[in-house]
Amino acid sequence: MENSPTTSSNERIALRINGEWREFEIGKDLQPWMTLSAFLREKLGYTGLKVSCDEGACGACTVIMDGKAVLSCMILAVEANGREITTIEGLPKDDPVILAFAEQSEPGHGTALQCGYCTPGFVMTTRALLNENPNPSMDEIREALSGNLCRCGCYDAIAMAVTHAAEKIVAKGGLS
């Protein structure tokens, strides 16, 4: 329960969010039971990530923590103490992954997004994949994105966008 005496504490945590270290007081800025997704969205205003299933089944809340794509609805905010978090707001506006998702439209595949609700999750999963594996095969792409649901069904175009993002990164001379 919010403000309940059992959870009040002067403990502080520090998170590096989108490049900036920030400190928060447990009990005041956040509660110990709060998920990272709720903390980022509701307390800090990073609404790019979405909470759709709230139990790790859809991938809409994906953010990057210490270089890995993670489901922020499955992590407590306090567990992120000392970690580096990147949300979609932290990506540069011309990030190759963002541009590839935005531009995807070639014949035979459709667009990489429709309603856009799942898109930030897919973008972040892709960003983490390409950080680790800049030239993934189609099988590796499909495997990496298999935890993200897109009910509009843009999977084929999403996979194409990932390959185009990889090409853009190569064209720019490597990882951004």
């Binding site: 609404t47 790019g48 979405k50 935005a102 070639e106």
Partner: peptide, 26 residues
């Protein structure tokens, strides 16, 4: 034509605000 959606870039950036993004205490 075959071309990107008009909202492709903003959606790929996670910018559009859906109801749950707007209805908050801020």
């Amino acid at each position: 034509g075959y071309q990107p959606r008009i909202d492709g870039l903003e959606k790929a950036q996670g910018k559009p605000l859906y109801a749950d993004d707007i209805i908050n205490e801020r």
